[in-house]
């Protein structure tokens, strides 16, 4: 054991020159997997979590030879990464073990609001260095957030259309959630928040129908059968679909909002513009 503990720092020292160039990046977090795969050249990524290979999260084919880790320190150590990205929570033990062994581990904060999203991207910028797609994404999100919500801008709150999110298992999103921020920014009034919901809350189909939102917002992504989706496939929801009064949030918003928040905000704003025109 003593032999190993002496050898490891030596090994790590040998890798030190590579570390500065950051040519071998690994991730211990589902969302960071996605961000790396999206923005970083595939040859620079040595490992992402096994979840990235799961059909629910995979956005495209994974680069060849990519190691899918299970969040264990030893499997990453073997790959000799010069940068390991970890989330705020999860795989904490592996991250601290790697850090003790001298690997550069950077914790990127999770994001649960638009402000935190900017902080998350800022943290990534400072660790990844010059990265054009990340810059484009960051600047776009920043400029979107600098804009005021359409209703506030026009000063006519009377014409603000209402919206309500209906997700799997009859869950709706209240005022403390990122989804709520996106709706408000796009110029919708989130009815769940107005009725006092702060976080996730159960909402029955009856309450959805009684609230009469102008726009019904569903969460997309899951195509497999689950009773959890029974509510969103109920015939009473079909009326909304037929009238085009439905917006489907991308599944990525749920597990890695940094990927799609800006795009979703734009689409929601477009949807609102359609609404105001049609009225």
């Amino acid at each position: 054991m003593r032999y190993v503990s002496r050898l490891l720092p030596l090994l790590l020292l040998a890798m030190a020159p590579v570390a500065l160039a950051q040519e071998r990046i690994a991730s211990l977090n589902l969302c960071l997997d996605q961000l790396l795969l999206e923005w970083v050249a595939p040859e620079k990524i040595v490992s992402v979590t096994w979840l990235a290979g799961d059909d629910h999260y995979r956005r495209g084919p994974l680069p060849e030879g990519l190691h899918l880790n299970r969040g264990r320190a030893e499997e990453l150590l073997k790959l000799g990464p010069d940068l390991v990205l970890a989330g705020q929570y999860g795989a904490g033990r592996a991250a601290s073990r790697l850090h003790e062994l001298g690997v550069r581990v950077v914790k990127i904060p999770d994001a649960y609001s638009l402000e935190q999203l900017l902080q998350q991207l800022q943290a990534l910028r400072s660790v990844l260095g010059k990265n054009p797609p990340l810059e484009v994404h960051y600047n776009k999100l920043q400029s979107l957030l600098a804009l005021q919500a359409p209703a506030v801008a026009s000063g006519k709150t009377g014409e603000t259309p209402t919206a309500l999110i209906l997700s799997a298992n009859n869950i709706t999103y209240g005022s403390g959630m990122l989804e709520h921020q996106l709706l408000e920014r796009a110029g919708f009034r989130n009815l769940a928040a107005e009725q006092g919901a702060q976080q996730l809350q159960k909402v029955s189909l009856e309450e959805v129908i009684a609230a009469q939102p102008d726009l019904l917002v569903l969460y997309g992504g899951e195509k497999d059968f689950a009773l959890a989706h029974l509510a969103t496939r109920h015939p009473v929801i079909r009326r909304y679909i037929e009238r085009g009064r439905v917006f489907t949030l991308p599944a990525e918003l749920g597990f890695c909002p940094a990927l799609v928040a800006g795009e979703t905000l734009e689409k929601l704003t477009e949807k609102r513009a359609e609404f105001v025109e049609s009225q």
């Binding site: 009859n170 189909l205 497999d224 689950a226 959890a228 509510a231 109920h234 015939p235 009473v236």
Partner: peptide
């Protein structure tokens, strides 16, 4: 082993039953 992410929690439904969100169909 079902592909759906919600499958495990739905054991409760199949073992105890529910009438929620049911319609004419």
């Amino acid at each position: 082993y079902a592909p759906s992410m919600f499958a495990m929690q739905e054991i409760v439904f199949w073992l105890l039953g529910s009438l929620a969100n049911r319609g004419w169909d």
